[in-house]
Design a protein around this nucleic acid. Sequence first.
RNA 1: GGUCGCGUGGCCGAGGGGUUAGGCACAGCUCUGCAAAAGCUGCUACUGCGGUUCGAAUCCGCACGCGACCUCCA
Length: 472
Amino acid sequence: MPLQPPHVGLYVCGPTVYSDVHLGNVRSFLTFDVLVRWLRHLGYQVRYVRNITDVGHLVDDVDEGEDKIAKRARMERLEPMEIVQKYTNGFHDVMRLFNILPPSIEPTATGHLIEQIGMIGRILANGYAYEVNGSVYFDVPKYAEKHAYGELSGRKIEEQLANTRGTEGQDEKRSPLDFALWKKAEKGHLMHWPSPWGEGFPGWHLECSAMSTKYLGGTFDIHGGGMDLKFPHHECEIAQSTAADGHAPVRYWVHGNMLTVNGRKMAKSEGNGFTPEELITGNHKLLERGYSPMTVRFFMLQCHYASTLDFSNAALQAAEKGLQRLMAANDLLQRLKPSAAGEPFDVAALKAACHAAMNDDLNTPVLIAQLFDGARAINAAHAGKAVLSQADIDELKALFHDMLFTVLGLKAEDGAQAGDDLSDGLMDVLLGLRADAKNRKDFATSDMIRDKLAALGITVKDTKEGVTWERG
RNA sequence: GGUCGCGUGGCCGAGGGGUUAGGCACAGCUCUGCAAAAGCUGCUACUGCGGUUCGAAUCCGCACGCGACCUCCA
């Protein structure tokens, strides 16, 4: 139950816009897209905040090393904000491609420096941070005296201390567990802003705390992100908000799981990922061919968000066929006539099962399984083997529309493989000749035309609705 | 090394003490001049070994295998 029904506050950690959006991001944002769609379908008014990280995310570990965006800017010889704009645009394009709805608010870290500096001030005032040499660090041991640092990720502070690796080069920190709230800008640093502690830039974890507080309040309903953000990022967010404002910021944490390839996490650092473009075009050594955005979306939704999902050509192809089947059933449903013969079918029970699946921790694979049961009933009714009244059909139409398009966010993709006007025209001529031959029962000629076209990679199908063709 | 999680039929993947997940593939059938496509039907699995139980894929223990986090990634 939300804090203030019917309003729901949802914050999701958005991308750091320093390179092309990664397929793992797509899965993560897809998960929350479906969550938002479902909540809205249930009648909640969701304020969905998803940030753009455009500063403060460092390349290396433990608050040392270069800013990711600044590094990219240097590599591409661009202004940092050009990098941010370039990859933000690309990110939006990919989101649109996969039919992922935009958030209600998409704040940037650089646009909320005042809020971040204010939050650091509150943390300092409460004694949970200290300034060293123009940088401000969060005092984790101090915080851990009164609060459960590591609770979210099930970590114990002693264990962490024991496991900490070398602390060379971070003498400014009192404890290796401490993390930066504000970093002093060294000479030559491309991105820096004035602050009470001098020129510098904000720590990565801070932006989410500051912006979620600003737009959703000190405590809000749901915070989402990838599993890999659980620690330390989200742990730090909890600590920052608690240290600044005295209470935990989030009621429910939702973490999406990773994408794997051949059993290994798909990660930028592993080099085993493909970009969304490569997945669609099939232009990657791991891909036999391309898959449409909706195929990919459906493929991802056939797995629960909290489970790892393994990419393979066979699995993608299975999803593609399954999606076609479901969409074909939905098309059939639109022109289905009532059927009074055969087995009865309980549409209300199907609807209840669909809702139950989604209410059970967003179980999209079970929802999809239910829809396949509906598809079977639709086909059976079409064949006169299942009973569906006009009222049943209307209800089923509404259910399929809601689940397929509104909630799962799928959309029809034209399978039309037709090319330019010239080839369309040529095909019309050839298929017309073939139809004439068939009418004369000159099957040798009609099959010859079909076989020659097949040799060119064009498949001709005689369906009940007429002749269709597509490029293989 | 520490923490956590997983191991389901040919493949992908839900579920989670007794009852069909679902999809793909495969086989048979229907429809078709023949194909293709489509539809229908069939295909009953839970890593191994112990234990708890009337009953375990599901709970507990051990073993093996795999993965994630512990350092940037959604």
